[in-house]
Design a binder for these strands. Structure first.
Lengths: 372, 372
DNA sequence: CTGAAAGCGCTTACAG
DNA sequence: CTGAAAGCGCTTACAG
């Protein structure tokens, strides 16, 4: 049974200290690169530590230093099974969240932090508990859009520093998001003034998504201000998914409705579905109807026609989110941009004009994706 | 400054105990659903805890119970920037790892564990340190394929329970992988016997990937055993990427080489590149050349032609990995399938016959992907 | 059923 | 420059 000579319990700082003939304080100091330890001490500790294969226990370290060096990241996972259909559909949308997480991770790493990730299904009943549990395991949380209600957010913020990636926020929760209003207004101007479309529509995302509200209102207001018509309302209520876009178009067509000259979608996913449904009915984009998205996911430029959309600095959102959270963690309180409220960082976006709005195609876009 | 009435330090178990008029032991017991506490005690604790918004500190809990309820997951991240080109190319491959992680997460959650994720670039110089650091923050590690050398694996395994998702392993590291040999032999038989191809080739993945080695050898051996020719070697050395597949085919064609009748690729990514390069040169698949993949990623069925490939139970790999790791963590030692070595779990795979090998198309595959 | 007390493995003032 | 000692916030035998 005891073929292993060494004890089965991992070495602690005491073992290292004993072996090096110093106090645990000294071991701690050299291992943490503290000021003083003199070379001789340093060498003996390093040697002993290496021989023992010592790895400091994160829990003990966290308890003692009051810092876990771990941030929690919670994001919404589409109710995905790994079966073909819907998954393939939502694969791209996963990318959006993953890109953000990647941004978080890169700068987190720079600060010596690791990510505790947790994907959730919004319908989950025990969600609040789950999040509280992970809150206990980290120094702060970054919550993607659509994972918690404003009330839920506030509750979590009472327990740990929180950065939200939604348009909402307030109280002690900081927010990092990208600009929506200006770019959507620019899009409206482009469609109305540059292309001369007079009849537009906006297919909305989740009704309770703050970003969606801003995007829709900005777009519609500007279009109308320019004298164009802009359809909105229940008939144009999507849900950020390709399937949602498909349904809306199919529904409208089956009702015999006259489609608008241009359709602006709440995101690229939705636009993908719209393109599909339009093609299904033999309608040409942008010839018969122009279509636009929002996000500029990688696939946007590989669609046929290439999708005109608004580019969000996805990875940068994650990077900024961590920076803000980190400062909240270290300063102990809400990283306020002003001296009063928690931070609200707005990243710039940019209108990307491609084929689907009626602009000429970009010649340089070869890709394996053309094949798919 | 002190507009907040409550202290800025979060409540501890002592605060709850005081407020409920019981000992911290009792608080701990009811909060952990232990046997005894009687209803009266229980209620007071719960009430006090709720009023205070108490969330137990994970570090303290971990230190005391010797269990962090956290597992580390390390996977290789393609050197991706968020710029278009290569990213779009590798997006699908990210999906593979993410699917595995999803599988891990689902069952981890069931056991009350969370995931500490860490993506690495293999060329990273500080990789060993990074991994040791995260080892200190969790109860065990799951390492995806291609993140550590066998020696590196062994080193980590000395510090914490480790499950590897590669073909390699041994020592104290458990392995979870999927069957490769049988399915590749079946593929060879299918191509040679059912389709009558006599001249085949295998485009390899990373040379140091155990799975790749097995796939290549099984395929080639079987093909040759059936009297067919099978090209392998340096000219057919890929790297699991689409770009790799493209290069090989382009190189061969530019050399004026006569291509084989069928090309089996180490994975779907590679096959994607091969399809692209072949199309580029006006070659028809499967008319002129048959092509097959391995993995059955979601996009495989949406390619034109639909890709014949070998399906791996991706999510299941993650699920099994966690199960094994969990048992290693709780039993304290390598979850051995036998009584000697660490576990080596092999999951079944299945040959999926679609168009690219020469079989008739599957009529039922509509998808937004058709558009992309 | 419940409390007092020890202990988990570190870090960090505090004195030399 | 270094050690003795306290303390981080929990869990869990051990005695009632």
């Amino acid at each position: 049974m005891d073929s292993h000579p060494k004890a089965d319990t991992p070495p602690t700082i005491y073992d290292v200290a004993r072996r090096a003939g110093v106090s645990i304080a000294s071991v701690s100091r050299v291992l943490n690169g503290r000021d003083n330890p003199r070379p001789a001490t340093r060498d003996r500790v390093l040697k002993a530590s290496a021989e023992l294969g010592f790895v400091p226990d994160g829990a003990a370290r966290a308890l003692s230093s009051r810092l876990k060096h771990v941030v929690g990241v919670v994001f919404r996972r589409v109710y995905g099974t790994d079966d073909g259909g819907t998954f393939a559909d939502e694969a791209e949308s996963l990318l959006f969240g993953d890109q953000i997480n990647r941004g978080i991770e890169i700068v987190a790493q720079r600060y010596g932090y690791d990510l505790l990730v947790c994907s959730v299904n919004i319908d989950e009943r025990t969600l609040p508990n789950r999040i509280m549990t992970i809150a206990g395991k980290c120094d702060g949380l970054i919550l993607h859009d659509q994972v918690l209600s404003p009330a839920g957010l506030a509750a979590v913020a009472r327990v740990a520093p929180v950065v939200s990636l939604a348009g909402a926020g307030g109280g002690d929760v900081a927010v990092v998001r990208s600009e929506s209003a200006d770019s959507m207004r620019e899009l409206a101007r482009h469609l109305v003034q540059d292309h001369g479309y007079r009849r537009l529509a906006y297919i909305a995302g989740h009704a309770d998504s703050p970003d969606n509200v801003v995007r829709g209102r900005s777009f519609a207001d500007e279009a109308r201000a320019l004298g164009a018509e802009c359809l909105t309302g229940p008939a144009w209520q999507g849900d950020y998914s390709a399937a949602g876009g498909v349904e809306i178009v199919r529904g409208l067509i089956s009702l015999g409705a006259t489609l608008p000259r241009a359709i602006a979608c709440a995101n690229d996913q939705t636009a993908l579905g719209v393109l599909y449904a339009l093609a299904e009915h033999g309608l040409d984009v942008p010839g018969d109807i122009a279509v636009t998205g929002f996000d500029d996911l990688p696939f946007a430029r590989h669609l046929r026609p290439q999708l005109t959309t608004v580019r969000q600095p996805i990875q940068e959102i994650g990077a900024q989110a961590f920076e803000v959270l980190h400062s909240m963690i270290t300063t102990g309180q809400p990283a306020s941009t002003t001296t009063e409220a928690a931070a609200d960082i707005v990243l710039p976006t940019r209108l990307i004009r491609r084929e689907s709005c009626g602009c000429p195609p970009d010649p340089a876009t070869p890709s394996w994706r053309r094949l798919v």
